[in-house]
Amino acid sequence: MGRYLILFLSLFFVGFANSMSQPIISVDGDKATIKIDNIDVGMSGFVVKHLNKEHSIILKNAVVSGFDKKTKIATLKLSDYDALKQNSLPSGKWKVSVGDEVVLAFGYSRALLIAPNEEIYHRITKALPTLEWVHPDLFATVLSFNGHPTPLKEDFNNMCSISSAGLLYFYIHENLFTLDCKSMTILQITKAPLKQESLQLPFYSRVEQINANWFGSGSSKLKAYDPYYYELLVKNNPKNKELYDLIKNKEQKLSSLLDDFDMKDEK
């Protein structure tokens, strides 16, 4: 199983190792489109306006919200770019327009892995040696600064921004989930039945204690690994049929999460 996992993950990583860029062909409010041979819904990036041959500026965040395989047209959801905040500098009045460049899958060579123990963490990271891994100690330090022993979505988003990580991995009950680090959309679910003999909460790190706020979301210590991270995945992927089927076949204690899906007629 170990060799299969390494081969499968390596083949998957090859397809997402490099960023890709395409010009915008249409803009309508907070939506834009590009033409591209293939792209996964949920991939994130940003819009660049080239002012001249030597100067350019990042205008917006961009997340792929839809892709038509027949027309090869991808629809992008645009939002304010917040990775590099500098309140002392003017923001400018440039708007996204046709011809601006969209860069997607930026930072997919860097990743953060959430794992239940040290052994599983090392087995998965060694399976993908070409990835530059952001150590969970750094994330635990960020959580301690924020006072969140239980990591929230905004904590993951913050960590992705400050570490320039493009991919986020969760190992949960014999499955490895690959997510876009900004949108937290599932890109791949890989069956990985690794033996788990111990559990560290909220995830494996060498940080002994994460400081907590007096109250508020994330201030309580995480009590259960699998249910919490499954809930986090469902909240950010309510239309993912593969995730729905996976949870449906799990233990009865996870059945309440099925109500959070938006599967409509697919149920």
Rank of each mutant, 00 (worst) to 15 (best):
R3E: 15
Y4C: 09
L5V: 15
L7R: 09
F8N: 09
L9F: 04
F12D: 00
F12A: 06
F16R: 10
S19I: 03
I24V: 14
D30T: 06
K31D: 11
K31L: 13
T33N: 13
T33M: 14
D37C: 05
D40F: 11
V41M: 07
S44R: 07
V47H: 15
H50F: 04
K53T: 12
E54V: 02
E54L: 04
E54P: 02
I57L: 14
K60L: 15
N61V: 03
F67Q: 04
K70S: 10
K72V: 09
A74L: 15
N87S: 01
N87D: 07
P90A: 05
K95Q: 09
S97H: 14
V98P: 08
G99K: 08
V103I: 06
G107N: 00
G107K: 00
Y108S: 00
R110G: 07
R110Y: 11
R110M: 10
L112W: 00
A115E: 01
P116S: 12
I120G: 01
K126F: 08
E132V: 12
H135F: 08
V142W: 09
V142M: 12
L143K: 15
S144G: 09
F145Y: 07
N146Y: 13
N146S: 03
H148E: 01
L152F: 15
D155R: 15
M159I: 08
C160Y: 02
A165W: 05
A165I: 13
A165M: 15
L168S: 14
Y169F: 12
Y169K: 14
F170L: 06
Y171D: 00
N175Y: 12
N175T: 13
T178Q: 07
I186C: 07
Q188Y: 00
I189P: 08
T190S: 09
K191D: 06
K191T: 02
L194F: 04
L199Q: 11
L201N: 05
F203G: 00
R206E: 02
V207P: 11
I210V: 10
I210A: 10
N213F: 07
W214Y: 15
F215G: 09
S219D: 02
Y225R: 13
Y228P: 01
Y229M: 06
E231K: 00
L232T: 11
L233C: 09
V234L: 11
N237Q: 10
N240I: 03
K241V: 00
D245L: 06
I247R: 04
N249V: 09
K250G: 06
Q252Y: 11
L254P: 06
L257Q: 08
L257V: 04
L257K: 05
F261H: 06
M263C: 10
D265P: 02
